[in-house]
Structures are given as structure tokens and as C-alpha cells.
Amino acid sequence: MTRFWNELHLYGPGFLQASYTVFGITILTIAVSWICGLLAALAQRSRYRVVRIVAGFYIWFIRGTPTLIQVFIIYFGLPQFGIRLSPFAAGIIALGVNSGAYVAEIIRGGLTAIPRGQTESALALGFSPAETMRSIILPQVFRIILPAITNEAISTLKNTSLLSTITVVELTLYAQTLIAATFRPFEFYIAVALIYLVLTTILTTLAGWLERRYAKLS
């Protein structure tokens, strides 16, 4: 144990680098998941049956299969069709598409919470349905779903550890290489857990600050 602490300065920069990677992947994954989630949520309300079915299938498939298998399909499966992605890109796409299905369900719930009158008053002034959605409905939905979407972001951050299986050098894989060299799994996994804890706490604090800001507005 003491040896671990004495040698911590050797691993510090590596851990920091791995933390940046985790944070970067998380931010990009959240971006992908919000886009997928918003599209899927809106598609579920489409007047075209085919569009609704596609969105329903997407959500059903993603929620019903393990995240790890989805990562493998993108990274190991797609090259059979000539689609070869870097581990980094494959990871972001797999986790983003995965989280998107959950975000879609969150947004769908948020949309049903907005009274019909909000849409009607905008339409009655001459706004298009798209502009009504963009400037009247979605800003209100975002406030309602902020707590749920924060939870989802935290899950996403923790899920980045799955990308250790496809050679993304994030915290988990970095720790594993160190453990292989030092045979000190306990210390390194505890260290990694604590770093994840710091990262998730940063996310929660950020979301809490946003929530309080919005609470003040209304």
C-alpha cells in the first residue's frame, strides 16, 4: 500500500490523461445521444406510421440488448461490411446511440407534460409547427427533464468503462495495464473508482447549478 502511494506521482499524468479521455468521450457521447434521442422522440409522434415504427424498433432494440454487445456490433461487426471505425469513434457512436434510446423516452415523457395550450397559442399567432416545437415546447421540456437527463449523462460516463474492451485507453484500461505490471488490483481499482466519482460529481454539480438557475426563472 505504501509503495502505491510513493509511486503515485509516476501514474498521475497517465490518470489525468485517461480522465480527459473519459470526459471527452462522455461529452461527445451526450451530444450524439441528445440528437438521437430528440429525433427518436419526435419520430414517435410523426404522422407517418413507418417513421413511428422505426423509432419504436430502435428504442425497443437498444433497451432490450446489453450495451456491451452493442459496442461489439459497432466495433467488431461493422468492419465485415467495410465500415472500419477507430475505437474512439466506434465507442462514441455505440454509447451515443445506446443512450439516445433512453433520452428519447425521457423527452417523450417531457413532451406529454406540456399542456396542449402552449402549442395552440403559438400556432394561433402564425408559428409553424417546427418553430413552435423549437422555441416554445422544447425549452420547457428541457427544464422538466433536466434531472432525468443528468442521470442518463452519469450512466453514460460510467458506461465509458466498457470501451476498455475495444482498446480505448480510458481509465479502466489504463488501470488494467498498470495492474498487469504491478499486481496491485485493489489500489488501482480503488483509485479508478475515486476518479469516476470525482467526474460524476462534477456532472451532478453542473446540472444542479443549471436546475437552480431555471428554478429562479419561474
Binding site: 399542456p115 395550450g117 402552449q118 395552440e120 397559442s121 403559438a122 400556432l123 394561433a124 399567432l125 402564425g126 408559428f127 409553424s128 409547427p129 416554445i136 425549452p139 420547457q140 427544464r143 426563472l217 419561474s218
Partner: peptide
């Protein structure tokens, strides 16, 4: 058409029972 509907609504004001101001 959708465009004609929007043009009509822009020239006809409507007020509802439940005010429907935008809370944000």
C-alpha cells in the same frame, strides 16, 4: 396549405380561456 394557414393565423389574433403565456 400550411403556409396559407400560418399567414391567416398571423392576421387573426386569438386569446384562450387558459391564457397560455409561455412560462419560460
Amino acid at each position: 396549405s400550411q403556409t396559407q394557414l400560418q399567414a391567416l393565423r398571423a392576421r387573426v389574433g386569438m386569446v384562450f380561456q387558459s391564457y397560455n403565456l409561455w412560462p419560460h
